[in-house]
Amino acid sequence: MKHIVKILTFHTWLLPIYFVVSLGCYGLLMVGVGLIQFPTCPQEAVLLQQDVVEAKEYLRQKGVDVGGCD
């Protein structure tokens, strides 16, 4: 009986840390699952690159510096 009481006093320290660790694990798991299920659209990627080129041309004509940052 007494060793059960000792286990319970140890667990009052341990339980909040256990919940924090499990919350971190859950977040990481959700990130992993989202990465696995991420839908890629190759056609949209091509269209996006075309949009980027058009926008750069347009802004360069207007006089804005589009040479990239840093």
Binding site: V31, V33, I36
Partner: peptide, 15 residues
């Protein structure tokens, strides 16, 4: 997908 799988595997094993 590989990175996502690795992340989920690490998190599940740690948990």
């Amino acid at each position: 997908k590989a990175v996502g799988f690795l992340l989920s595997y690490i998190s599940l094993s740690v948990f």
